[in-house]
Measured scan of single mutants.
Amino acid sequence: LVRYRTISKIPQITLNFVDLKGDPFLASPTSDREIIAPKIKERTHNVTEKVTQVLSLGADVLPEYKLQAPRIHRWTILHYSPFKAVWDWLILLLVIYTAVFTPYSAAFLLKETEEGPPATECGYACQPLAVVDLIVDIMFIVDILINFRTTYVNANEEVVSHPGRIAVHYFKGWFLIDMVAAIPFDLLIFGSGSEELIGLLKTARLLRLVRVARKLDRYSEYGAAVLFLLMCTFALIAHWLACIWYAIGNMEQPHMDSRIGWLHNLGDQIGKPYNSSGLGGPSIKDKYVTALYFTFSSLTSVGFGNVSPNTNSEKIFSICVMLIGSLMYASIFGNVSAIIQRLYSGTARYHTQMLRVREFIRFHQIPNPLRQRLEEYFQHAWSYTNGIDMNAVLKGFPECLQADICLHLNRSLLQHCKPFRGATKGCLRALAMKFKTTHAPPGDTLVHAGDLLTALYFISRGSIEILRGDVVVAILGKNDIFGEPLNLYARPGKSNGDVRALTYCDLHKIHR
């Protein structure tokens, strides 16, 4: 019993810090008490220290592992850092350059016999395009090294910054494609005289377009951006097909006994025919423009016929181009109408809503002055909100995010209106959640004399007048207030005048 009563005193000691020596009952000389009392004092002292730490809000209350900052290894790049964003855009520009100039170089340097010394005699450094290609190869190699040090988000939505895990993730992902696209074939085969082989191998750079397509997928929600990307894709495919079309004609031209190829026909049409040795002929500019003209006309199913396939190889390629053109029509131009419709969806919704308003007016036989006010209010409210119901949009977000959005939407009023000066951010967040926005066209009466005042109004834009009878008592403008002081009276009061809008007004109100 003594032991039980001794232990039962522990909660009292913990909360009230009572010393055991003052209790005459606990001072009985028993061996059990002498053993338990020192333990009680020690526990009391420890609990006292913990309570003191909690009340003082000291940093040592938290466990040590929670006080440590997340460790980022040296030379690790955050995937959302500004440097990584700028670097990704730079790589994107280099990939676009590669997609345009690599097929052009591979096709127009394929057994090209233009006048001038061969590239091997001039030297590697004197070729501007080769120098640019070398810079692109170096940048792609540097990009691989950067990807080995860039964080990523795993399946659990955690940012991984450990170098080993980053390397394994990159090896399992895009490393092989990036490595093949970054191989400097110019340096590996330079001086061997195989410019045709170098041009063909350099087309491996186009593998990076797969990554670019995935990154550009984030802009699919913007109709104008999608339309622009589709047109660029169409032009890029036409450019690639033009390079292939020229390569076919250029390879067949020296081996044909009869002059029936499209390059021969082009030379005869523009007065620059090929001679018996295969030299001469149109310039590279004429060849490229004509090839691009043929691919565009074939892809769009126009086909004027002034550039036509004559050999079997050219006919087979033309059939493939027609098939590609039909697929592009289905996948690209078939979506253009939907994209344009999405661009004008706001206008369509406006006309639909206006039609419903006019049908309501016609069905209920609203008189002319009231009908005009109804239409003007709808037009003004639509121009202010673009038909978007803010309350319906915010309803799907958590309250903390709703408060931040409301604070942002009402920031101008909260910053410049005098009653809100000096208020804490928590108070402003709470008030912003209570605001209701209303609009009024010129001549609209917001409050009639004798109406119950259940709200306090803040003028965000425009001006109003307060009338008693036919006498203008006051004219209020931006950041002015009218209405009933909230919670100042037990019952809502009545208006002693009319409140009429002089201009288009936007008002925020808080109800009782």
Rank of each mutant, 00 (worst) to 15 (best):
H239F: 01
S383K: 04
F190G: 14
M328D: 01
S331Q: 01
D88C: 02
G191S: 09
Q372P: 01
K285R: 13
M433W: 04
K418S: 09
P82S: 07
P82K: 04
S276C: 04
L216E: 01
P398S: 04
S192N: 13
G173W: 03
T113A: 05
A430D: 04
S276M: 05
M328Y: 01
W174M: 10
K285S: 10
V159C: 06
G305Y: 01
V180L: 13
V336R: 02
P117N: 14
I135S: 03
I340T: 05
W240R: 01
I189T: 13
S331P: 03
T347F: 01
P309F: 01
R421V: 09
Q68T: 14
L431C: 01
S308A: 13
L90S: 04
E157Y: 04
G303E: 01
N275C: 01
F140L: 01
M390G: 05
K285T: 14
C243M: 01
S192L: 05
T424Q: 13
R373G: 02
I339K: 01
S298C: 15
A381E: 10
W262T: 01
C427D: 03
P82W: 08
V100L: 01
P441Y: 04
G280F: 01
E157N: 11
S301P: 04
W245D: 01
L90H: 03
S297E: 01
G325Y: 01
D268Y: 05
R362Y: 01
A235H: 01
V289S: 01
R362T: 03
R358K: 09
M322F: 01
V393S: 03
I144E: 01
G325H: 01
P398I: 01
S326E: 04
L129S: 11
Q253K: 10
P82D: 02
G191V: 03
V180G: 11
G281F: 01
N250S: 09
M433A: 04
R218P: 03
V160T: 06
I144H: 01
S105I: 04
L263W: 01
V142H: 01
R371G: 07
T437E: 05
R218F: 01
T113D: 05
E121T: 14
R371T: 03
L299I: 03
S277M: 10
W262G: 01
K395Y: 09
L200A: 04
G443L: 03
F378I: 08
G396N: 07
G173P: 01
T347Y: 07
A235Y: 01
I237C: 09
T311M: 01
P128S: 05
F435Y: 02
L263E: 03
P442V: 04
I72D: 14
L109D: 09
E157A: 14
F304Y: 14
F185Y: 08
C400I: 03
G193Y: 13
R211H: 01
I166C: 08
Y377W: 04
L230C: 09
R362H: 13
Q269K: 01
T300K: 01
R373Y: 04
Q372I: 06
A155C: 15
Y124S: 03
T233P: 01
E157D: 12
L236G: 01
F175V: 01
P282A: 01
E157R: 14
A338G: 03
M328G: 05
G267D: 01
N410H: 13
K172F: 09
K111V: 04
T120I: 04
A403N: 04
I144R: 01
A238I: 04
R74F: 08
R421T: 13
G396R: 08
T98S: 03
